[in-house]
Amino acid sequence: MRTRLEKWSLLLSAAAVFVLPTVSSAQLSTSDIDTRLGTESHVGNITGHAKDAKGDYRRYCVGCHGPLGDGNGENAPYMQPPMYQQPRDFQLGIFKCRSTPTGTLPTDQDLYDAITRGFDRSNMPQWNTLSKQQRADLVAWVKHFSPRWVGEKPGTPIPIPPEPEVTAERIKAGRDVFARMQCWKCHGVQGMANGPSASTLQDDLGRPIAAFNFTDGTRPKCGDTDQDIYRIFMTGLDGTPMPSFADNIKPDEAWDLVFYLRTFMSQKSKEKEMAKQLALKPVDPNAPAGQQ
């Protein structure tokens, strides 16, 4: 037989579990969102229509992303940072995986790729089982939650020059870029996400977030081709601590950095072999600037 006090405290703590983790950022009402039901997307030669995605969104997406697209679906409270990021708040129109500069809207293709690819180390699966038309419609639906697309155009994608041949010189040069940009402050000198600033990182909503660990075999959230990695540090991941390096890394150096980052990753690669032969040491955080 439980006392009344015990019952109440049990009930209250149960309630707290459900209420506390929900970061409510919903700012728009259904009627406001509905004014943008005519939103379209253009992916290749496919035109997506928001209104055609309503059913698919209800069936596949609403559980996490919520009826208002604010990331407060009924499953959201169970996704706990920093291991699992909570669903995106589409109303804010801020996206990690873009081809466009920091502070700009992603292209329709970026959103389409995100839906298709899913996000590793998160609850977002790949949706490549849906037809191209369905995915394009969902892109339009995602856009219709945010008023930003009414007055704003997506940014101009950051150009990615053709990938050069990997050489030992380039890997060494990439190591210098890694040292100069001080990537290790968060990602660690061996890419193990254990840099001095790693433990205090927070996303834009004040939730803890982990730096990417290059060494644990998982894939970067925004894709794992060399072009994807190039794009990630040049555009930055908006909404997270990862800044854009577009003003500070020249295109040629960016490729060097991509090759150096590959040497951390557990997957077999030419870069990893070369680094082994070079007997590359991790960068020294205490070395004076320019003397690695």
Binding site: G93, T102, R180, G236, F245, N248
Partner: peptide, 15 residues
């Protein structure tokens, strides 16, 4: 708050 029309951005500033 992006709802105001001000859009967040995040830029690196190495030395």
């Amino acid at each position: 708050n992006p709802m105001t029309g001000n859009i967040p951005w995040n830029q690196s500033q190495p030395p």
